[in-house]
């Protein structure tokens, strides 16, 4: 974005929904988050995985924004922190597959699997796959949440003849 466009007038606030919706969301948001963690952690054993788990995790945050308005989300997951988590997810993935080169396998090789394998269909049975699932889940969670958040703070306004995109923080 060009520098001079930075200071623009703010637009309407999103103040959340009714008390009933707020109460229900308050109860279930935590469970949705937990379910996302489960889908991610068991991604190598059951249907699901990093992406599906990440989407469910992001849904729990999006639910909070929708029901309480975006002021409630800023102490929980501010934009800066979401960006950091997203980058961290990508970095964990890359460094894991990178480490494989130095751990006796080739690039992307499952180096943990070779060292200690345990019984099939147990939580720790797939080497570094759960680790990659967690990295993807972090990235998808933060990324999807950021997409939603950025769309919710961006407005397209008509300025003269042209459409213009403005942002409110």
């Amino acid at each position: 974005m060009k520098r001079e466009e930075k200071n623009r007038a703010p637009t309407t606030e999103l103040n959340g929904m009714s008390e009933i919706v707020k109460t229900v969301c308050n109860w279930i948001a935590g469970f949705i988050f937990l379910f996302g963690c489960y889908i991610t952690a068991y991604g190598h054993l059951t249907p699901g995985g990093g992406f599906a788990g990440g989407v469910i995790l992001a849904a729990s945050f999006i639910l909070i924004v929708l029901s309480f308005g975006k002021d409630k989300i800023s102490p929980l997951l501010p934009r800066k922190r979401a960006e950091m988590i997203e980058a961290a997810g990508g970095l964990i993935f890359i460094f894991t597959v990178w480490t494989a080169i130095y751990a006796g396998a080739s690039f992307c090789g499952n180096f943990i699997f070779k060292k200690w394998s345990c019984a099939n269909f147990k939580l720790l049975s797939a080497g570094f796959i759960p680790l990659l699932n967690i990295a993807i889940a972090l990235k998808v969670m933060a990324g999807l949440f950021l997409v939603f958040f950025v769309l919710s703070i961006t407005r397209v306004i008509l300025e003269g003849e042209k459409l213009k995109m403005v942002k409110e923080e």
């Binding site: 800066k80 922190r81 960006e83 950091m84 997203e86 980058a87 961290a88 990508g90 970095l91 890359i94 460094f95 597959v97 990178w98 080169i101 690039f107 992307c108």
Partner: peptide
């Protein structure tokens, strides 16, 4: 040839690292 994957790893890691460092500083 262990060098080949680095052409993908380095810029990809760099792009996330730029965002990560930026959100820390």
């Amino acid at each position: 040839m262990k060098v080949l994957p680095y052409f993908v790893i380095l810029p990809l890691a760099g792009s996330f690292l730029v965002i990560f460092i930026d959100s820390v500083l």
